Simulated scan of single mutants.
Amino acid sequence: MDAKTTRPLDAASDPRPLYARAADQVAALVAAVPAGGLDAPTPCEGFDVRALLAHLVSGVRAGAALGETGRDTDLAPVTGVPDDGWAKAYDEARARLVAAWADDAKLDVPVVVPWGTMPGRAFLASGGVLETVAHTWDLSRALGDPLPLDQDLAEYALEWAHRALPAERRGEGVPFEPVRQAPEGADAYTRLAAWLGREV
């Protein structure tokens, strides 16, 4: 990892700069979705591109609500977005999230999420950076890998995935398939996808 990446993965790190990089990257992919490409399949089982974009926007809105209230309260499905409106919807959601987490003090305040209670910084690293980076690969693959991806972000997300989602934590109640074997020499995104149970 280069000097831009927050190291080490500890309680003192601030994941917000990494989240900003991850959100910028996936936003570029959202903007690159071609007209008529919303029905294309993605590596997320049961998700076409449209459903994946709705999931991304919903997750960012929920993360913003978490920063605003300390609880994951904004879980309403994303509806009413026109086919050409996904880039705007994502940009508005991430701007809300960034504003909600702008106060440094919130990084140490416990927040309640469906999988437990944790400091705000841990949520931003896992539910923010890791979630965004994982779906970056999904969307990139669905679009034919139109843009180069930031490998440092994937290395960081993979370390968090190893910590938060060990291989033995799969099965009932965990929305990830068993770990798969990544090909020899695979890049960080492919290794992350394999760790999360994607077919690579």
Rank of each mutant, 00 (worst) to 15 (best):
V30W: 01
G85W: 05
D104N: 10
T132Y: 05
A105L: 04
V57N: 00
S126R: 10
A134C: 05
R16V: 15
S58P: 02
A27H: 13
F47K: 03
G80C: 06
G85K: 13
V60C: 04
A51I: 07
A31G: 12
E68I: 07
D14S: 08
T69A: 11
A31N: 14
A64G: 14
L9A: 12
L107V: 00
A105S: 10
D10L: 11
L38P: 12
P17R: 12
V30M: 03
P110E: 09
T132H: 10
V57A: 02
T69C: 13
L38G: 12
E131I: 00
A100F: 03
D84P: 15
L56A: 02
V133S: 01
G85C: 09
A32I: 09
V133Q: 00
D84Y: 15
R96T: 02
V57F: 04
P34R: 08
R61H: 09
A40E: 02
D72M: 11
G70Q: 13
Y19G: 00
D24E: 13
P15T: 13
P119T: 14
K106A: 05
L53R: 05
A134D: 00
R61E: 06
V109N: 03
V49W: 00
L75S: 07
L107F: 03
D91C: 08
A65S: 14
A105E: 09
V49R: 00
P8L: 09
P77H: 10
T117A: 15
V78K: 08
E131S: 02
L38T: 10
W86Y: 15
V113A: 07
G127Q: 07
A95D: 09
G46L: 07
L9I: 13
A125M: 04
